[in-house]
């Protein structure tokens, strides 16, 4: 599905160059559930953002369904991003002025989906996430777990091929986190490709593959089973 080759990312602050990612090579096939782990500051979020086309590498190649993303301009990149990628953030990032329903609706609006179809799609998702009763509430009226549920619903409503999640349970109690992870597992079973960043080893268990980052290098890339040994 996607492959990156020799990806580099650095920041220049004055004369100093801080390397964030160095020579990253990675292939992800459809249907995988990849977990990225590593110490804080090791470049996990940066890598995820590059995969999600929100950030550009300073060097290297990025092929997404064989399309050379690294050569695309911003407009084409965001088209690709819009149709294939869903994002879940640690801090939920819901729009405060919109209701649950409207937050979930947002990606559909930008895809130009007709109103009737939108209604049906949102009704489905609300039903599935058990949030029908909360659809007219504003984010501030929800608990963290509920907010993240909305966040996930918003990420998958457009049926993306790839779901990216940056510490989705980082701000949640463990029971709330479990609900989210169960949801991910279910989505994975339905065939969605997922890449998540987490600090939690238990969460990593849900995945099929584990990538360990350290100081911008891939230290280890293996099936989850091997980690357990």
């Amino acid at each position: 599905m996607l492959s990156i080759k020799n990806i580099e990312r650095f920041y220049k602050t004055g004369p100093l160059t801080t390397w964030v990612l160095r020579d990253i090579n990675l292939k992800v096939s459809e249907g995988e559930f990849v977990t990225i782990m590593g110490p804080s500051g090791s470049g996990k979020s940066t890598l995820l953002n590059i995969l999600g086309m929100l950030d550009q590498p300073d060097a290297g190649e990025y092929l997404f369904f064989d399309e050379p993303v690294h050569r695309f301009n911003e407009k084409r990149r965001s088209e690709l991003h819009k149709h294939y990628i869903g994002f879940v953030f640690q801090a939920y990032h819901l729009i405060d002025e919109l209701t649950v329903y409207e937050n979930i609706e947002t990606p559909l609006l930008y895809r130009g989906i007709k109103s009737a179809e939108r209604k049906a799609m949102i009704a489905d998702v609300l039903d599935r996430f058990n949030m029908v009763a909360k659809k007219d509430l504003f984010p501030a009226q929800l608990s963290g777990g509920q907010q993240q549920l909305v966040g996930v619903a918003r990420a998958i409503i457009g049926k993306p091929k790839l779901l990216l999640a940056d510490e989705p349970t980082g701000n949640l109690h463990s029971s709330q986190g479990e609900t989210i992870m169960e949801l991910f597992a279910q989505l994975h079973r339905e065939g969605m490709t997922i890449i998540q960043v987490t600090h939690n080893e238990k969460n990593a268990q849900y995945g099929t593959r584990l990538i360990q980052l350290e100081d911008g290098f891939v230290r280890d890339d293996a099936g989850v089973a091997r980690l357990n040994v």
Partner: peptide, 11 residues
């Protein structure tokens, strides 16, 4: 708000 909208497809 704008950042979020852009992430979720706003051109």
């Amino acid at each position: 708000e704008i950042g979020v909208r852009k992430v979720f497809g706003a051109a």
